[in-house]
């Protein structure tokens, strides 16, 4: 919806050629390979994929909160004049919670059990606003709690996380990350741990606040329903790579990659009765990411596999305009290419 109106704005974040390798006993695990994307103010980019496809590692890499065994490299990660791949840890800490906020999956474990909600909200503000008084921080905290839909905000400030429901805790988490009005918010499966009824409320809240605070958002999810509800741009990840990338409309209506089509078939369609048969599923599991990757990482689960899928490096290529995919077939092909056209003929 905001895709057109904000297309003239410069991107808040430009990620170019980001890789994350994790040292494991068997060698280097390529958790994220050659990921590039950008997000503009008020725009939502959804990173979609199965568990283990590198979504969360991507988000942690942007926050520079990767585990110690991981190494991040990138041509650049441009954010407000900084290169997040290169700035010092001190400089990065000054951006976290201030210009970039992050919302985590499980609100039950992501809040410190021994400090009050007020304390945990105020400390973000006090950290990033030198000379601000406790009173100012408290007022800001109270305002944001009421802004994320928590009633009796003043009273809630004195409570501890265990006294709140999961939905309220996630609202509190959102309020905490908005204390300093960041330009970019990264939400890693923000609704996965919540009741279905609460999920919708939280998503609507996030979209509303995003418009109000003029924020760019990267939303990580495996739930295509969430993507359909929120995304302007979509990047589908598989085995650490982006396999398809484009506007939500293009990706949903004209999926170019066999994996994306498989994912969409796994999703119950609106109005589809239970009697209309089984939901689709993609057979097989995500391949190991240790060692050198050759060819298409999806090929072993792909019904359209061809001999050429095993070879070389497959680049992202345009399907149409700003819509990219990583496959040797024509966009949206439903049959493998005739053997006569392939190199193995």
């Amino acid at each position: 919806m905001s895709g057109l109106s904000s297309s003239s704005d410069a991107p808040v974040l430009v990620v170019d050629g980001m890789n994350v390798d994790i040292a494991v006993p068997a060698g280097a695990l390529h958790a994220v390979s050659d990921v590039s994307f950008s997000v503009r103010p008020k725009e939502t980019l959804c990173l979609v994929g199965e568990s283990g496809c590198g979504k969360t590692i991507t988000s942690l890499a942007l926050m520079r909160l990767l585990p110690r065994t991981a190494t991040l490299t990138a041509r650049k990660i441009a954010f407000e004049g900084h290169d997040l791949a290169k700035i010092s840890e001190r400089a990065m800490a000054r951006l976290r919670g201030y210009r970039i906020g992050m919302i985590f999956q499980d609100p039950m474990t992501s809040l410190n059990p021994v400090y009050t909600i007020g304390n945990q909200l105020e400390e973000v503000y006090l950290r990033h606003h030198r000379g601000a008084s406790r009173k100012q921080a408290r007022e800001r905290a109270e305002y944001l709690l009421s802004r994320v839909g928590i009633i009796n905000a003043g009273q809630r400030l004195g409570q501890f996380p265990h006294q709140l429901s999961g939905g309220l805790r996630q609202r509190m988490m959102i309020a905490m990350m908005l204390m300093c009005e960041p330009a970019l918010i990264i939400a890693d499966e923000p609704t996965t741990a919540l009741d279905v009824t609460v999920q919708v409320q939280i998503l609507q809240l996030l979209r509303g606040l995003q418009d109000e605070f003029n924020m760019a958002m990267i939303l990580i999810t495996h739930n295509l329903g969430v993507v359909a509800r929120t995304a302007d741009q979509v990047a589908v990840m598989y085995a650490g790579r982006v396999v398809e990338q484009g506007s939500a409309e293009d990706v949903f209506h004209n999926p170019a990659h066999p994996y994306t089509r498989g994912l969409l078939e796994c999703m119950p369609k609106h109005g589809q009765a239970a009697s209309m048969g089984r939901l689709g599923s993609i057979p097989g599991i995500v391949p190991s990411l240790v060692g050198n990757q050759r060819g298409c990482s999806f090929r072993n689960r792909c019904s359209l596999q061809m001999p050429t899928c095993h070879e070389g490096q497959i680049d992202l290529r345009p399907a149409r305009g700003d819509h990219f995919y990583r496959c040797l077939l024509e966009p949206g092909a439903t049959k493998p290419r005739p053997v006569s056209l392939g190199s193995a003929a």
């Binding site: 926050m63 909160l65 951006l95 919670g97 992050m102 985590f104 400390e123 950290r127």
Partner: peptide, 21 residues
């Protein structure tokens, strides 16, 4: 733990993360 990760995501200094959280 997740809440220590949260504390770091808030940009708190290593000292505060370690000794407060």
């Amino acid at each position: 733990s997740d809440y220590v990760r949260t504390a770091r995501a808030k940009g708190l200094s290593p000292f505060k993360v370690l000794f407060k959280h």
